[in-house]
Simulated scan of single mutants.
Amino acid sequence: MTLLPHSGVSLIFTGIICATLSQEPNLVHIVQGTIAAAAIINEFIAVLVAKKGFELAGEMNA
């Protein structure tokens, strides 16, 4: 749950970048797709890595 604001910030910055690049629609689609995909992938990988880190630190009983 703590990672959700992180991806929200990246998506807000995506909107700002796309507004700046609005004269180049092809670039806008590339940027939107790339950052959205990266945010989704990050949400899955970061959760697993954080869980493993907590297990290695002895903070969880796994």
Rank of each mutant, 00 (worst) to 15 (best):
V9C: 01
F13H: 06
G8H: 00
E24Q: 14
T34Y: 12
I12F: 06
H6D: 03
L48H: 08
V47G: 03
C18G: 01
A38E: 07
T34L: 15
L21P: 00
E59F: 11
E59C: 08
N61K: 10
K52P: 00
N42Y: 13
N26Q: 13
V47K: 11
Q32C: 11
F13E: 06
H6N: 08
I45D: 03
I30S: 11
L3I: 10
V9P: 00
A62D: 10
I41C: 11
I16C: 06
H29D: 08
T14D: 09
S10R: 05
E43V: 11
H29A: 15
A62M: 06
A19Y: 10
Q23C: 09
G58T: 07
N42I: 02
V49T: 08
A38T: 13
E59A: 13
E43L: 15
T2S: 13
A46E: 08
G8P: 01
H29T: 13
A57L: 13
I40Q: 09
V28D: 01
G53F: 04
A36S: 15
I16L: 14
L27N: 05
H29G: 01
Q23L: 09
T34Q: 12
E24K: 12
G15H: 03
L48A: 10
Q23V: 04
A46R: 01
I35A: 04
T34S: 15
L48T: 07
L11Q: 14
G58V: 07
L56S: 04
A57R: 04
V31T: 15
S10N: 05
H29P: 00
T14L: 14
N61Q: 07
H6C: 05
Q32W: 07
Q32G: 09
S10Q: 07
E55M: 06
L3Y: 09
Q23N: 12
V49M: 07
I40N: 09
G33T: 11
P5W: 04
L56G: 00
F44A: 06
A36P: 02
A62I: 09
K52D: 03
V47D: 02
K52G: 00
F54W: 05
G8N: 02
I16N: 01
A37R: 11
I35V: 15
I12K: 03
T14V: 15
V28C: 15
K51Y: 10
E55Y: 01
P5G: 03
S10Y: 02
V9W: 09
I16P: 00
L4F: 13
Q23D: 11
A38Y: 08
V28K: 07
I12Y: 03
V49E: 02
M60A: 04
I12D: 02
S7C: 08
V49F: 03
V9Y: 06
L11E: 14
Q32K: 13
V28N: 03
N42G: 09
N26I: 06
E59I: 10
T2Q: 12
I30W: 14
G53S: 07
H6S: 07
P5V: 05
I30H: 12
A62V: 10
T20A: 13
L21Q: 08
N42H: 12
T34H: 11
A62Q: 08
C18S: 07
L11N: 09
I30R: 15
